[in-house]
């Protein structure tokens, strides 16, 4: 179950004063089971790109293939695609509307036309996956904390049993605790269900900890697409477009400049500390 994007272009408001080339010739392969980070500053096109993955936006030219089927071809079931590629928007808690948490999570599977039993069993499973305690299931979503609300909203997407889960800045506005909880939960989910996860974020530190592949977007184009440690080697280019490598990358480069023989591609605190200790033991 893979997504392939070929020569995708998207132009906003064509022919008006606001015309904007939001995506330029995007070519991407998103195979099964990967944990992908997508990075870029505001306006780089990343939010636009992910809305093409489930057909909410239609490219001006180019094609998106889901399991080798062109989703723009006539007769393609868009509604089914939306259940296969789950898209969690920014501040997803703003979409909650039902009187209680459980009913809200049922909304997605119900729209798929599933039976009551199937709908409910999926909702239970989804709420379990996001780690929400059962005592909250019958509570109004508006009485929960920010982090809990967000988990309910993510469960609302998971209940549709997607094969690809796309999260647009799932940690925006959360405190460090809420952020870690959500990201850990997503990582666990990836492990447990083996689904593809695409995590859109501003934060290199967050992404570096979890993903195996990073796609950097800039001005509507894919700028880098590689393993994190490889991408962060381009920290100077990243800086030029308003992004940055994790702080430890700079630390390792700083030490190297002073003649320390440490690898420069550490991306997490643990790796950096380990490398420094190893170097000090050897010398």
């Amino acid at each position: 179950m893979a997504i392939r994007i070929e020569h995708l272009n998207y132009i906003y408001g064509a022919g008006t004063a606001f015309e904007k080339h939001a995506l330029r010739d995007i070519n991407l392969d998103l195979p099964d089971g990967q944990f992908i980070g997508m990075i870029g500053h505001t306006g780089s096109g990343k939010s636009t790109l992910i809305q093409h993955l489930n057909g909410l936006l239609k490219g001006t030219s180019g094609a998106v293939y889901y399991n080798d089927k062109n989703i723009y071809e006539e007769g393609f079931e868009m509604k089914r695609l939306r259940s296969r590629v789950g898209l969690v928007f920014q501040y997803p808690e703003h979409q909650l509307f039902e009187a209680d948490v459980f009913t809200d999570v049922c909304f997605g599977p119900k729209n798929l036309g599933l039976s009551k039993e199937e709908t409910e069993s999926r909702a239970y499973e989804a709420l379990r996956l996001v780690g929400l305690k059962e005592k909250y299931y019958k509570v109004s979503p508006f009485e929960l904390s920010g982090g809990q609300k967000r988990r309910v909203a993510i469960a609302g997407i998971l209940a549709m049993n997607p094969e690809v889960l796309v999260l647009d800045e799932p940690t925006a506005g959360l405190d460090p605790k809420g952020r870690d909880d959500i990201l850990d939960q997503v990582a666990k989910l990836h492990e447990e269900k083996k689904i593809t996860v695409i995590l859109v974020s501003h934060s290199m530190e967050d992404v570096a900890r979890y993903v195996e592949r990073i796609i950097v977007m800039n001005k509507g184009q894919v700028m880098f697409d590689d393993a994190p440690r490889k991408v962060f080697q381009h920290y100077k280019e990243l800086e030029a477009i308003g992004l940055a490598a994790p702080q430890v990358t700079y630390l390792m480069h700083g030490l190297q400049e002073r003649g320390w023989k440490v690898p420069a591609d550490a991306t997490t605190v643990e790796e950096a500390a380990g490398a420094i200790i190893e170097y000090l033991q050897k010398s």
């Binding site: 405190d175 870690d180 630390l251 605190v269 643990e270 500390a273």
Partner: peptide
């Protein structure tokens, strides 16, 4: 208290 600490401080702490 579940608060973040700058990465440099964390590396120093690990060391």
């Amino acid at each position: 208290f579940r608060l973040d600490v700058p990465q440099a401080t964390l590396v120093a702490y690990e060391l």
